[in-house]
């Protein structure tokens, strides 16, 4: 067997799973011939090592590379199943009402020129009044619709996560009560792995401008921000994966009203609870 034959055999074998080992392990025929050649040929032994290393690297890269078609499938799935995120609709040209038709009583009372000018002016004025009123109603309706969509999406997220996490009996439940003894209340659901969390609060009035509700956890005396609370109708909530797991131990959870422009947790604590 010469160099070319040996390398050819090795390359073909490399195409099959375990092919090289099978070829070299064969007790007769090609296996015997190639082993004898390799024993006497350092150049082909180097080629064998290079081939093994290449196949190993290629295999690893192939295994960790997503299919190019996955991009289109993922984006299509988001379009199909993702929440509606259409921007607040602007009134379309079709929504602007057409000028009202002229009344049939007027032509007998005025001259033709006056009539045309008057009708045009009246129609324009009427159109503007109706348009402004309609525009205001549409804008209000759009805002209301957008708020409803946000609420529905938020409630959906809360339900989805609560059902999923509470299905595990090892999940941690914590009740939150108002720090000032008021009617506000809340709950925390922490996954058994300590990596996922649902926090929901009721009775919190929308924060004043420039301020927000921020939830946090205190582990071993260290207070860590979890994130900003979002609103879904009357509820405030935070749902998601934690940037680092919350380990076992005594935990305190809370919600603080903070200045949005600051990063910390200094502010009025409104809800608090502990394991």
């Amino acid at each position: 067997m010469d160099h070319a034959e040996a390398r050819d055999q090795l390359e073909w074998a490399a195409l099959e799973p375990g092919g090289i080992d099978r070829l070299l392990g064969a007790e007769h025929g090609d296996g015997l011939a190639i082993r004898e050649h390799l024993a006497a040929c350092p150049e082909c032994r180097r080629e064998l090592e290079s081939l093994r290393a290449s196949v190993s690297t290629i295999r690893q890269a192939v295994q960790l590379t997503p299919d190019p078609g996955l991009r289109a499938r993922t984006l299509a799935q988001v379009s199909r199943l993702g929440r509606s995120r259409s921007a607040t609709a602007q009134p379309s040209p079709a929504a602007v009402p057409a000028p009202a038709p002229p009344s049939s009583r007027w032509p007998s009372l005025v001259g033709a020129a006056t009539f045309v000018a008057g009708v045009a002016a009246s129609a324009l004025l009427a159109g503007l009044i109706v348009w402004r009123a309609t525009d205001a109603r549409l804008t209000a309706a759009d805002a209301s619709l957008a708020e409803q969509r946000t609420t529905i999406a938020g409630l959906g997220i809360i339900s989805d996560w609560t059902l999923r996490l509470s299905g595990d009996p090892a999940a941690t439940h914590v009740r939150l009560t108002a720090a000032d003894g008021g009617a506000q209340a809340g709950s925390v659901l922490l996954s058994a792995t300590g990596t996922e969390l649902v926090m929901v609060a009721s009775g919190l009035s929308p924060p004043p401008g420039g301020r927000e509700f921020r939830c946090w956890v205190e582990v071993a005396g260290e207070q860590v921000t979890i994130g900003r609370m979002y609103r879904a109708g009357e509820l405030a909530y935070w749902v998601g994966e934690l940037s680092r797991p919350i380990l076992d131990g005594e935990l305190r959870f809370g919600v603080t009203l903070v200045d949005s422009a600051t990063d910390g947790l200094s502010g009025e604590v409104v809800l608090i609870g502990e394991t």
Binding site: P66, T74, Q77, T225, S243
Partner: peptide, 25 residues
């Protein structure tokens, strides 16, 4: 399974983009 995880991850990003807090990581 890994491809399904990728799809679910980007669907979660789409659905919960407001919840991403750059200060948290």
């Amino acid at each position: 399974a890994a491809e399904e995880v990728v799809q679910e991850t980007f669907l979660a990003l789409w659905n919960r983009a407001e919840l991403y807090d750059r200060n948290a990581g």
